[in-house]
Design a protein around this nucleic acid. Structure first.
Length: 649
DNA sequence: CAAAGTTTAG
């Protein structure tokens, strides 16, 4: 209609420009604005205010500045709406300084000015300032509206400010604003970000109206807070009310990944393929990560290859995927290729490459990347980077070096760092250092018995019975275990969960007799009582027999007993597999001629013909198996994780 | 014909 008009006046132009800009066509809006300028029609306030949001959306900061200059000349910074639009433009283009100057020099500010500035601060990472500004606004006697409330709630969420969020919640309740979906969604987001999913759920359940954002916020919250089953449950429930969109898929896929549920993952993937509008870069990246963590590295690579505009996240998940499967060389190649494509790594990307090096025993390469990161990219290492380096040294048996490295760190080491050294001390039977290390972890986490158990096992292995007795007394005194061991296996679309030490599963009798059989055969082949392996007959000092007490043993036995001969068995565990179980699983893979894949909280272990793809993170086979699994890709589908990914509540 | 807010991947 606009094109067909013979007489276009100011309002015609303003209408079409504003129409474009507010309907996702910012470039058309800008082009029409340029046309309008050269057509000789005079501009007015509405023209400028309409076109400015298009500048911010397109990041046309030069154009925004030009408009700013023109508006000073014509309106002298006296028009509040215009200055508001300029503030918003500057903050969205990343120039918070200019936005701040404009805001501070305003004589009269409307609620929109305050809100624009509050979200400007939040957008640029100044969360405390955003919340402070909200308070100042209230002090000036301006009562917040829905926009101001959602903006400050967003700042609370980003900052993880629970108390502030709760105060806002009270305010919302007092003023009867709980019927507004945006406010409710923002509140849920605050609680989810602060880790209080119960509070988020309360808000969600009480809301009389829910939109797609409400569902996505809850599903994403469950995913991020290690409640993957709740996330999946809600995802199913949601589909009775509204259709998932791309954001939904990006929210739910990490839940699938943390459960290592390949069946569910493929279901989701199929759902994405069926609906044409369910995929974007976020979703593709989440798919690559999901497949890697479900053990299907070749699928992950296929999806990865099909991504046209790979970004830093795409590369990072692919590198981490290679790392958790022990393909360090491939990880390094991917890193190199990424740099060739002109993509700059960030701190998180370096974590995945360092992690890959440490899990593949690539010591020199690991150090090289660590130095490149510090000196070439000027990235200050965080506790996670240091943890990778300690892990690298520990696995290589350079225990003293690792100890000195930790004590010379410029930041305070956390318990995970000490733990990896403590594990290494056990493998290399270094009691003296282990005791020094243990003191640090006991101090940091006195309640966590798993460290005491670790030390106890070491004492048992070197036959220090007196020390063992003492540490066992300590264990019973400190009582509760922080993370109870549990493993799960997916068979015919059903998940079977096994907890350590329990014999509750209906098939537990059969599992027990199978494991008894394994034990007998191992005995016959001389696995006990020799120093050849870590495993010893230790009924005399361990409450639970390794063979049937540890959950992964039960899950693997269950898998072998309930699937056809020769089929691979895939199990996921929430903690790290112990050295003894690791030996037993190797034996089992040979005994029943099966490929066994175990994803623990650290990585994938692929057992085949009596060997494991981890190339001996477990010391005993450190040299023996070096380089054996260069081509582990040929395994096809296996099971993966980084850090606490596999933890399950 | 005009300004501000809520959900997503490592």
């Amino acid at each position: 209609m606009f094109d067909g008009m013979l007489d276009k006046d100011l309002v015609s132009w303003n209408s079409i420009i504003s129409g474009c800009v507010s309907n996702g066509l910012p470039l058309n809006g800008v082009e029409l604005f340029a046309e309008m300028c050269s057509s000789g029609v005079n501009l007015d306030l509405a023209t400028l205010v309409s076109v400015l949001p298009a500048c911010s959306e397109m990041s046309f900061i030069k154009m925004g500045q030009t408009i700013h200059g023109y508006s000073v000349k014509v309106y002298g910074n006296k028009e509040i709406t215009l200055v508001n639009a300029l503030i918003d433009m500057y903050s969205k283009c990343g120039n918070l300084g200019s936005a701040k100057i404009l805001f501070e020099r305003m004589e009269d500010r409307s609620i929109v000015s305050w809100t624009s500035m509050i979200s400007g601060y939040t957008r640029n990472g100044w969360f405390e300032e955003a919340m402070g500004l909200f308070e100042m606004m209230e002090l000036e006697g301006i009562s917040p509206d829905l926009y101001a409330i959602t903006s400050v709630l967003h700042a609370c969420a980003c900052n993880g400010s629970f108390d502030q969020g709760k105060r806002m919640h009270d305010f919302v309740a007092r003023n009867g604003l709980e019927s507004n979906i945006s406010v409710v969604n923002s509140l849920m987001h605050v609680y989810a970000k602060c880790g209080d999913m119960e509070a988020a759920r309360m808000v969600f359940d009480c809301a009389n109206k829910k939109d797609i954002i409400s569902w996505n916020t809850m599903i994403g919250g469950f995913s991020k807070n290690c409640l993957p089953n709740e996330a999946l449950e809600l995802f199913i429930k949601m589909q009775c009310h509204s259709r998932p969109n791309r954001v939904t898929m990006a929210c739910v896929l990490p839940a699938v990944a943390s459960l290592s549920s390949l069946d569910k993952g493929r279901e989701m993937h199929a759902q994405i393929l069926r609906a044409e509008d369910l995929s974007d870069l976020h979703v593709s990246n989440a798919l690559v990560d999901m497949y890697a963590k479900c053990g299907a590295l070749s699928f992950a690579r296929k999806i990865f290859d099909r991504i046209i505009d790979k970004d830093l996240i795409s590369w990072t998940v692919m590198i981490a995927g290679y790392g958790m499967h022990g393909h360090g060389r491939e990880a390094i190649n991917a890193f190199k290729e990424m740099r060739c494509q002109g993509i700059e790594p960030d701190g998180a990307c370096f974590i995945s490459i360092l992690y890959s090096c440490s899990h593949s025993g690539l010591i020199d390469e690991g150090w090289r990347f660590f130095n490149i990161m510090k000196h070439e990219y000027k990235i200050e290492p965080t506790v996670q980077h240091y943890a990778c380096m300690v892990d690298l040294l520990s696995r290589a048996g350079r225990l003293t070096k690792a100890y000195n490295f930790i004590t010379s760190m410029p930041i305070k080491p956390d318990s995970a760092i000490w733990e990896s050294l403590l594990r290494a001390c056990r493998i290399h039977r270094d009691v003296k250092l282990a005791e020094r290390v243990a003191e640090h972890v006991f101090e940091l986490e006195p309640e966590n018995t798993s460290y005491y158990v670790l030390l106890a096992n070491l004492y048992a292995e070197v036959e220090k019975w007196e020390a063992l007795k003492k540490i066992r007394e300590k264990i019973s005194r400190h009582g509760k275990q922080k993370h109870r061991g549990c493993s799960w296996i997916e068979l015919r679309n059903k998940v079977h969960v096994f907890a350590s030490g329990s014999k509750l599963h209906p098939r537990s009798e059969k599992i027990g007799s199978f494991l008894e059989d394994v034990r007998k055969r191992m005995k016959e082949e001389g696995y006990f009582g020799q120093n050849k392996f870590i495993l010893k007959d230790r009924n005399d000092y361990l409450k639970e027999d390794v063979l049937c007490g540890h959950s992964e043993m039960q899950a693997i036995a269950f898998g072998i007993l309930n699937s056809s001969k020769g089929k691979p068995v895939r199990v996921t565990k929430n903690l790290t597999v112990c050295g003894d179980c690791h030996e037993v699983i190797k034996f089992m893979s040979k005994m029943v001629s099966r490929e066994i894949t175990l994803r623990d909280s650290e990585r994938f272990h692929q057992f085949r013909e009596g060997r494991c793809s981890c190339r001996g993170s477990w010391g005993a086979e450190l040299k023996k198996n070096q380089g054996l699994y260069q081509d582990a890709d040929s395994f096809g589908i296996s099971l993966g994780t980084q850090g606490n990914m596999a933890r399950r509540k």
